[in-house]
Design a protein around this nucleic acid. Structure first.
Length: 228
DNA sequence: AACTCCTCCAACCGCAGCGGT
DNA sequence: TACCGCTGCGGTTGGAGGAGT
């Protein structure tokens, strides 16, 4: 590994290192991680710097317990996406992929495990309520300079609206969830569901195509999927 | 008080994908 | 087309701290 080869520091970050990294990112911005250790004067590998920033130092990172809403959304997204932690985290403002992954591994996996064990005692129930689900794996894609998406070409017209009548006012919990983190609403990930002003979601055609029709039929709308 | 066990989170590691040459 | 470097992701590990004995 690069750490072993170059003898860079590993392990927990000190307050001084945090400050150096924070100042460096504020000065030069995110990205160019291979330059960060040199710029910041840190004896850390680029990966370590990036991870420290993304998981701990980055502004707007939400710490503390996951709310019920967040857990609910996480479960639904995991059902749809599988272990695509970065995508799931992209829909949970302030949460990092590491947070989501850790939370799932420590809490949810155990719950699912115990649920399955319960169902083993009741075969009929497991056949009906806990069918193995098909995990959708959207093809990761990046926006290149040549991409039509970057050049102002409009997105797919396949808009899946939040169904009327499903949510109004305080029931739009996902909006309040995003209120204080409006930066996260934008295209922080091309495979996420960009939120329109009217609360609907837009999807690339490929995204829609990749979703099993049974799932959509079952959920009817994205709001059904995203909301209780 | 001392020890062991367990939990959980931060950090590490390897790999895949992408862009540039 | 092949190679290289960089980035980002998901799986795994290590260790600090709490709980139990």
């Amino acid at each position: 590994m690069e750490g072993r080869l170059s003898g860079v520091r590993k392990g927990a970050w000190s307050h001084t290192e945090d400050e150096l990294l924070r100042e460096c990112v504020q000065l030069y911005g995110e990205g160019k991680w291979h330059l960060v250790p040199q710029r910041a004067g840190l004896n850390r590998c680029r990966k370590s710097c990036r991870l420290r920033w993304l998981n701990y130092l980055k502004p707007n990172i939400k710490r503390g317990d996951f709310s019920e809403d967040e857990v609910d959304l996480m479960i639904r997204l995991h059902k749809l996406l599988g272990n695509r932690w970065s995508l799931i985290a992209g829909r949970l403002p302030g949460r990092t992929s590491n947070d989501v992954k850790n939370y799932w591994n420590t809490n949810m996996r155990r719950k699912v495990q115990s649920h399955k064990e319960n169902n083993n005692n009741n075969v009929k129930e497991s056949e009906t309520t806990w069918k193995p689900h098909q995990v959708i794996k959207p093809v990761p894609r990046a926006l290149t300079k040549a991409s039509s998406m970057v050049h102002g070409k409009t997105m797919s017209s396949s808009k899946v609206g939040v169904s009327e009548g499903v949510s109004t006012g305080s029931e739009n919990w996902w909006e309040t969830l995003l209120d204080d983190k409006e930066d996260n609403i934008t295209f922080n990930n091309t495979t996420c569901f960009p939120v329109e002003n009217d609360g609907s979601f837009e999807l690339w055609d490929e995204e829609l195509d990749s979703i099993p029709t049974e799932f959509l039929a079952e959920a009817e709308t994205w709001s059904d999927f995203l909301l209780n």
